[in-house]
Structure formats: structure tokens, C-alpha cells
């Protein structure tokens, strides 16, 4: 069940936005019996840098997760699903990572998002790390897939903050396209 972020306490550093972390894990065999939303487990919301670390420090790192697991870190009030009003017209940058890189890259991505390093107004919705059997996948969701200046700016910031290997492929996909080819979830 969802709990809103507590107000930052004295001495804490407030974030520009409150965020929520969700976790999902797909167990083999139940793909069709339940919908994505039912797999989604709320972890915590936070409003300050210190609250973030208190939550993050207690979570398993992506490299420690097994099977088909995802962390979803979204602005509070945005559900990590395409149906949410904030995501309907949006899209995401997708970055495939060789095994062994996900934990470090995820942390860099999260810190850049919380620290407002993307400088694209209200465009960022959230980020996902998807642990899979082969490669791991990072994605960064934004509101307006048709806003090319914004998506390019997000890509350039991603390159700067993630320190990716030079051969890393980055792909932008609208949520509408992900739905059409059933590649989203």
C-alpha cells in the first residue's frame, strides 16, 4: 500500500520532487494470469536526500537481484505504467547493459535524476532498472515523446552522467510503440 513521503526533517536536504520506489518481479508461469499492476509492490516514498539514502541503503543492489526483477523510481504521484496521465504521450530512453554494470549505472542515473541534472523542466517521469537473464536494461521515462529537443537533451545528459562504454547502444521508444510490439512489460 502506498504511503506518501514524510516532510524533510530538520537538517535534511529537500529534493526538487518527492519520489516513490516500486519493485516488481515476474515469476515464471504467471505471465498471463495477473496483470503488471498487481506485480508492482510499493517500497517507499521520500522527499529528501537523507530519506533517499535511508531507503536505498536497505535495498538489494540490482546485481544482487535474481530472475526477472525491476526497480521503478518515479516522481510521487506518477504510477510507473504507460496508462498514467504523465506517461500516456511519453517515451523512454533504453540502455542495454552487459552484466556487471547495472548497479553502478543505476546509481548514477538515480543520483542525476534526484539532483535535477537533466534540466528539462517537468519532463522527467522516472527511471527503471530491469534485471534480466542476459543483459540488464536501464530506462528513463519522459512525458512528451514528440518533443525532440528534450529527448536529445536527456540523451546527452545520460551519456555524461552514466559513463557508459563507448559501444553502448541507446534507443528511444515511445510508449505507444512499446505497446504495439508488446515489448514494454
Amino acid at each position: 500500500t502506498f504511503r506518501p513521503a514524510p516532510k524533510p526533517g530538520p537538517g535534511e536536504h529537500p529534493l526538487q520532487f518527492n519520489y516513490s520506489i516500486w519493485f516488481s518481479k515476474r515469476t515464471p508461469g504467471n505471465k498471463t494470469s495477473t496483470t503488471f499492476g498487481q506485480h508492482l509492490k510499493f517500497v517507499a516514498s521520500f522527499a529528501s536526500v537523507e530519506q533517499f539514502w535511508a531507503v536505498y541503503s536497505h535495498l538489494a543492489r540490482p546485481s544482487e537481484l535474481t530472475g526477472h526483477s525491476d526497480y521503478h523510481l518515479f516522481k510521487e504521484g506518477i504510477r510507473p505504467m504507460w496508462e498514467d496521465d504523465a506517461n500516456k504521450l511519453g517515451g523512454k530512453w533504453i540502455i542495454r547493459l552487459k552484466k556487471g554494470l547495472a548497479s553502478r549505472c543505476w546509481e548514477n542515473l538515480v543520483l542525476a535524476m534526484l539532483g535535477e541534472q537533466f534540466v528539462v523542466g517537468e519532463e522527467i517521469c522516472g527511471a527503471v532498472v530491469s534485471v534480466r537473464f542476459q543483459d540488464d536494461i536501464l530506462s528513463l521515462w519522459n512525458r512528451t515523446a514528440s518533443d525532440q529537443a528534450t529527448t536529445i537533451r536527456i540523451r546527452d545528459t545520460l551519456k555524461r552522467v552514466l559513463h557508459l562504454p563507448s559501444n553502448t547502444v541507446m534507443e528511444y521508444k515511445t510508449h505507444t510503440d512499446s505497446l504495439k510490439d508488446h515489448s514494454s512489460f
Binding site: G11, P14, W53, E116
Partner: peptide, 21 residues
């Protein structure tokens, strides 16, 4: 209005704060 911007190094520093436990 003003945006609250934090560099990575600062965020990492806050990790060690007793408030972050």
C-alpha cells in the same frame, strides 16, 4: 522558481550523514 540541484559528489557525501540512516 529556483530548482534544487545537487551534484553527485554532494549526494554521495550526504550518504554518510547520521540523518540518512
Amino acid at each position: 522558481g529556483t530548482r534544487i540541484v545537487y551534484e553527485r559528489a554532494f549526494l554521495m557525501q550526504c550518504r554518510n550523514s547520521p540523518l540518512a540512516k
